[in-house]
Design a binder for these strands. Sequence first.
RNA 1: UGGGUCGUCGCCAAGCGGUAAGGCACGGGGUUUUGAUCUCCGCAUACCAAGGUUCGAAUCCUUGCGACCCAGCCA
Length: 553
Amino acid sequence: MSTTDTQVPAHFIRQIIATDLKDNKHNGKVVTRFPPEPNGYLHIGHAKSICLNFGMAIENNGLCNLRFDDTNPEKESVEFMESIERDVQWLGFAWAELYHASDYFEQLYIYAENLIEQGKAYVDSLSAEQIRAYRGTLTEPGKESPDRNRSIAENLDLFRRMRAGEFADGHYVLRAKIDMASPNINMRDPALYRIRRVHHHRTGNDWCIYPMYDYTHCISDALEGITHSLCTLEFEDHRPLYDWVLDALKTPCHPQQIEFARLQLEYTIVSKRKLNQLVTEKHVSGWDDPRMPTIAGLRRAGFTPKAIRDFCERIGITKQNSWIEMGVLEHCIREDLNDNSSRVMAVLQPLRVVIDNYPQDQTEQLEISNHPQHPELGKRQVPFSNVILIERDDFSDTPPPKYKRLVEGGEVRLRGSYVIKCNAVIKDANGAITELRCSYDSDTLGKNPEGRKVKGVIHWVSEQHALSAEVRLYNRLFALPQPDNEDNFLTAINPNSLEVLADCKVEASLAAALPESRFQFERNGYFCLDKDSVEGKLVFNRTVTLRENWEKD
RNA sequence: UGGGUCGUCGCCAAGCGGUAAGGCACGGGGUUUUGAUCUCCGCAUACCAAGGUUCGAAUCCUUGCGACCCAGCCA
């Protein structure tokens, strides 16, 4: 062990895999899979699972498949499949194979007949309601179905006719014959197949019976030679069923299911049903709305794949239900963007400043570094002239204590430029400040003024050179840390989650910026150019503010 | 009142019988032409509780307490 060893935490799944490798349990192989159901967009919670599954494969020289769990065609779509592939790749991962559970429908069917032949599955004619009633409760055992002892021959015949489409939807169901008195409700003869005449986005109308998750997932894992089947805690109770199915069948292998806690992030929800509701009821602009915790939303907001991966590593993998504070995610994106984004000046709420002693028709090209700590990011030319725009907040005629920006009679540094002094404040009839009259000290470019200290530094743009922009200031979508705890999560929506500033001015160098490029607007935060940008009007989304360490009153 | 799982700092999280890592947050100092960054310092005599075993327990045992998940022909 050297001190330079990486310091990734050895969470329990890493430990299990390390032990298995040492014991040569799977011939030294590690094969995982990320198995989303294509019924919605991927979100930050999926990112945790993606990073884990792909991460374990990468770390151990193994393989990770992407497998669509497409056994319920009613809720699934090609749009969702495409978005999932896009998001996984954007996060930076490459799957070994792309599979669909529907690829295995025929094999699954054959296995089902095998189960019937072994007397381990039967066709039940009980209705859904009856099955529920027969299931018993958490504290009382269930009752056996009258059809439970149907003959193997009859079960086989019925099941084949189910497939052939002889029966109406819901008329029959294939059930595993396990134990109606099991304390684990999942083992009380769970359904394996249901009749459902729905068009499937991949298999079309080939099937009118569809296999259930519990039956499909374990077999799919086995067919792919998965060694470690990682899933979330709510499937813990299903593991005995996972193992029961594989023990009953002669599958190529028997993967080990290991459960970990799903991500819960404060001020967000990660329920696909609810995210879907936000979209369909138009509480947000779409699945990729920057306020959405979806990968697509985070991407549009300006998050980087690296920051999301870092986040997933930092929060750890355990079996404890826990809530992650937003601050952790924010830290990750600030850390990446601080290091890698170019600095630029943008005035969100402009206030006109006329510099009376600067030549009226003169323009000076000031050379400003793109990153204070990374000279390798280069420099850019920023035009300076006698009329500039500064942030309204950067001037105050009633300055609070410790205010270090511009005040009447005071001086301030224009970032990358001169020191100016405010000589007069122009107000309109209502007393609102419309303009500042200033003078500049020509001997302060690149050097401190003689004999006095100017502590404030503010950003600015030259009025005649600036570009117009719309800036969208996003805040958390929910006003409560745990929206799901409300009777109706919609009541927890933050009414101020989006503030649109339509008349912002940004420096000219941004004219060539491409959608999805990220910048630090100095002193304001990190922003990402949105795809809504058009000629003459740039649109920026705020990813996150800069940290603000001083106490505001 | 059945079964499964989990309880270590405000939030995460190491720890695997030898005397409480780390991150985020927070508080304070320094540097700074971003009140950013960077940097230095501080931050659990304490591990849900109570007993017990042991020279020694967050780690083992017992008994409590608390939280989460399960009664879809969803995944």
